[in-house]
Amino acid sequence: MNIFRLFGDLSHLAAIAILLLKIWKTRSCAGVSGKTQLLFAVCFITRYIDLFLHFVSLYNTEKVMKLIYISASVFTCYLIFFKFKATYDGNHDSMRAEFLIVPAAGLACLINTKFDAIEILWTFSIYLEAVAILPQLFLISKTGEAETITSHYLFAQGSYRALYILNWIYRYHYESHVDTIAIVAGVVQTILYCDFFYLYITKVVKGQKIVLPA
């Protein structure tokens, strides 16, 4: 474990907590893409499927973190699609999730480290996570604005994989560990946040709200 991966995981946890708090406190999921949250839930379930196969005692933090990610993302989807369904902005959350899931699944069958079920599920999860934020960014571009709390959520969510890139550089240099598929997908994922990061740094940090040119 290195500092980059530690802060990456903490940033990821923070993102999940910020979103849950926003929805729970405001009792509304306005401005939140339910599809992105569904895709994240699918990512966690397919990536941590080993938790369900051979259940190992929760002796280490990694198992606990995996369970937190899965339960928090499923609970977030429950809040969006059931509890606060009335506030779900379905009209603007209109990016076709199939256009992300099918290519990720196809690519996972073509480019993977080993052609076996668990490995392909893991690879699918990595590819899907890289593009899972697109419906959320699409929704913001449609509504033309993002609530400040949602911007903080996106910043934490984007920073997590950016920090993982530093972690991969660290591990390559000190442990000569390379996981090419995760690295390429992680770089693509972080690049998708670039324009949002620019808006966040230039606006939200100064207390302004992100309003996209309509």
Partner: peptide
């Protein structure tokens, strides 16, 4: 062998 492919990251 078999599970040598360990993805040790979250």
């Amino acid at each position: 062998y078999g599970c040598d492919l360990v993805h040790d990251e979250l």
